[in-house]
């Protein structure tokens, strides 16, 4: 039977807590890096179909800067840090002092590597917190950056899951910059897609085994 059919609401709550711990740690890292106050939203955990997932990052054709990595080890999965175009440009300006348009094919190499490094740091701090919390050994691959349509990049994270079914469980966390009077849009969004087999291990580690 598919793992997803055995999942109860309290399982999702436990995943929410795991996402909270991971993203909380990542938000602290980002805050230190930018020397700004960063807030995060309570993560949302949902079971969603592929078309819904493609749209989670803001529409299939929306241009985003996506850092993607594969997690190997006891609980394999895929992870994304998605920055909307404007946010990615602001962050790279902040980090490199250069104004770039990331939708141009050959945007500044330095800006690209700054964004990749940012993804590296944030994903790393998310995963190390999650790994400590669950005592599960998680080894991230070297992250890779792509600037493209949200639908096209998100689908890369769904391949492993799509072999098992048509739904994925996604832990979605938003970070926000909170300085100034106007609440800014999301600074970044994390998506964690555990592979279907990983759930057995994750729930066992968190003390809520599947039946």
């Amino acid at each position: 039977m598919e793992v997803i059919q055995q999942i109860k609401p309290f399982h999702l709550d436990v995943l929410k807590e795991a996402g909270n711990i991971g993203a909380g740690n990542a938000a602290t890292s980002l805050s230190q890096l930018l020397n700004k106050k960063i807030d995060m939203k309570v993560p949302s955990v949902r079971i969603a179909g592929f078309q819904e997932l493609q749209a989670l990052a803001g529409g299939e054709e929306t241009i985003v800067a996506a850092t993607f990595l594969r997690i190997t080890g006891e609980a394999p999965g895929s992870m994304f840090l998605i920055l909307q175009k404007k946010e990615a440009e602001e962050l790279s300006y902040y980090l490199t002092g250069k104004k770039v348009d990331i939708a141009e094919g050959t945007f500044d190499e330095l800006a690209g590597s700054a964004l990749q490094e940012l993804g590296n740091i944030l994903a790393g701090s998310y995963l190390s917190a999650l790994s400590d919390f669950t005592s599960i050994n998680m080894q991230p691959s070297v992250p890779s950056l792509a600037v493209d349509m949200a639908g096209a990049v998100m689908s890369s994270g769904l391949i492993e899951i799509s072999q098992a079914g048509d739904y994925a469980i996604v832990i979605d966390t938003e970070m926000k910059e909170t300085e100034g009077n106007t609440p800014s849009a999301a600074t970044g969004q994390f998506f964690l897609f555990p592979d279907p087999d990983a759930f057995i291990k994750i729930f066992e580690a968190l003390g809520v085994e599947l039946p």
Binding site: F68, L69, R70, S141, V142, S144, L145, A152, V153, S156
Partner: peptide, 12 residues
């Protein structure tokens, strides 16, 4: 397409 260049032993 191959959206990301991740070296992996996994064919996926």
């Amino acid at each position: 397409a191959q959206m990301f260049s991740i070296s992996s032993t996994n064919d996926i």
